[in-house]
C-alpha cells in the first residue's frame, strides 16, 4: 500500500509565552495508507485535534516532518495543494459554515481554489448529492438540524475533491439520528468514493467500523492495530480512561466472572454468536 500521510519523528508544543510551553506531541511517528479508514481514539487533551491540524499545515511541527503524498507541510509553496488534498471537518458545524445559503457555503472551498463557474457548479451539485442535501441547496444553514448542518460542512470539504478527509469528532454535538447520518456518509466516502478517511472520535462503536484503530494517550500512540486486536486489550484501554464497545464489554465482564470464551467480539452479531455457542455447549455438557 502507498502511504498518503507520513508523520516522521514529529514534536510539537503550543507556546503560551517565551518560557511557557505546553508539549503535546514528542517524537511521534504515524503512517496512513492511501484509501484506508483509520480511527484515532484518546481521551480529552491527548493531542488528537492538534495532530489533525498538523496534517494540513494549520499547525507546523517544531521538529520532524509531516508529508502529504510526499509533500512537506512546512513548505509554504505546498500549503494550498495540501489543504486541497486533506480536508478537515470539525466538531461544531455552526463554526465551519461561512455563507448564508447552503450551496454558496459548499462553493466556498472551490471558489478559493479559483475554478471557473461551470466547474464550481458541478462540484457543488455533486458534493451536495453525495451527502444527500441537494434538495436543501437554497436553504439557510441556521434553519437545518445539527446532522444536516454537519452534512453541509462535509459537502464543503468534498467539493474541494480531496484525497483524504480528516474528521475531528464530527458527531460529538449531534443527536443519535444525526450521528447515524454522518457516520453513513463517512463510510460511503471511504468504501464507495475511495477516500482516505481519518476519524477522530470518542464513540467506540464508530471506531469499531474502521480498518485500523490508533489509540493515543498523552501525545503517544499506545495501541495501533485492527479494531479486533485493539479492543481485545480491554485493560489497557480502561487504564487510559477509554471504554470498549458494549458487546466487547459484555464478554469481558463474563470472562472476568469465570466463563471462558475463546474469541473476542466487536459487533452485536459476533456477541450474539459467541453467546449462543456458549449456551449450546452448556446444554451438551448437561
Amino acid at each position: 500500500m502507498q502511504p498518503f500521510i507520513e508523520v516522521k519523528d514529529l514534536s510539537f508544543s503550543y507556546s503560551l509565552s517565551e518560557q511557557e510551553k505546553i508539549p503535546v506531541l514528542s517524537h511521534f511517528d504515524l503512517t496512513i495508507e492511501k484509501g484506508s479508514f483509520v480511527a484515532i481514539l484518546g481521551h480529552n487533551g491527548s493531542g488528537k485535534s492538534t495532530l489533525a491540524k498538523l496534517f494540513n499545515g494549520l499547525q507546523l511541527p517544531d521538529s520532524g516532518q509531516v508529508l502529504i503524498d510526499g509533500k512537506d507541510t512546512a513548505d509554504e509553496k505546498n500549503i494550498l495543494d495540501i489543504r486541497k488534498n486533506v480536508g478537515l471537518v470539525f466538531q461544531n458545524p455552526d463554526n465551519q459554515i461561512v455563507a448564508t445559503i447552503v450551496e454558496e457555503d459548499v462553493a466556498f472551498g472551490p471558489e478559493n481554489l479559483g475554478f471557473p463557474q461551470a466547474e464550481l457548479r458541478r462540484r457543488v451539485d455533486e458534493a451536495l448529492k453525495a451527502v444527500d442535501m441537494y434538495d436543501y441547496r437554497k436553504h439557510e444553514p441556521h434553519r437545518l438540524s445539527g446532522g444536516q448542518k454537519q452534512r453541509v460542512a462535509i459537502a464543503g470539504v468534498i467539493a474541494m475533491e480531496p484525497e483524504c478527509i480528516v474528521f475531528d469528532e464530527p458527531t460529538a454535538m449531534l443527536d443519535p439520528k444525526g450521528r447515524q447520518e454522518v457516520m453513513n456518509i463517512i463510510l460511503k466516502l471511504n468504501r464507495q468514493l475511495q477516500k482516505t478517511v481519518v476519524l477522530i472520535t470518542h464513540y467506540m462503536d464508530e471506531a469499531a467500523q474502521a480498518q485500523r484503530v490508533v489509540v493515543m494517550d498523552n501525545g503517544k500512540i499506545i495501541a495501533d492495530d485492527t479494531p479486533h486486536a485493539v479492543f481485545a486489550q480491554v485493560e489497557l484501554l480502561k487504564s487510559v480512561g477509554l471504554d470498549v464497545p458494549q458487546p466487547t464489554e459484555l464478554i469481558y465482564q463474563l470472562k472476568k466472572a469465570g466463563i471462558a470464551f475463546d474469541k473476542d467480539v466487536l459487533t452485536d452479531e459476533e456477541c450474539l454468536e459467541a453467546l449462543s455457542r456458549k449456551f449450546s455447549e452448556d446444554e451438551h455438557c448437561q
Partner: peptide
C-alpha cells in the same frame, strides 16, 4: 477562532 481555522482549511487566502 474555529471559523478562521475552518476557512483556512478550505484554502481561503
Amino acid at each position: 477562532k474555529e471559523l478562521a481555522d475552518a476557512m483556512e482549511c478550505r484554502c481561503y487566502h
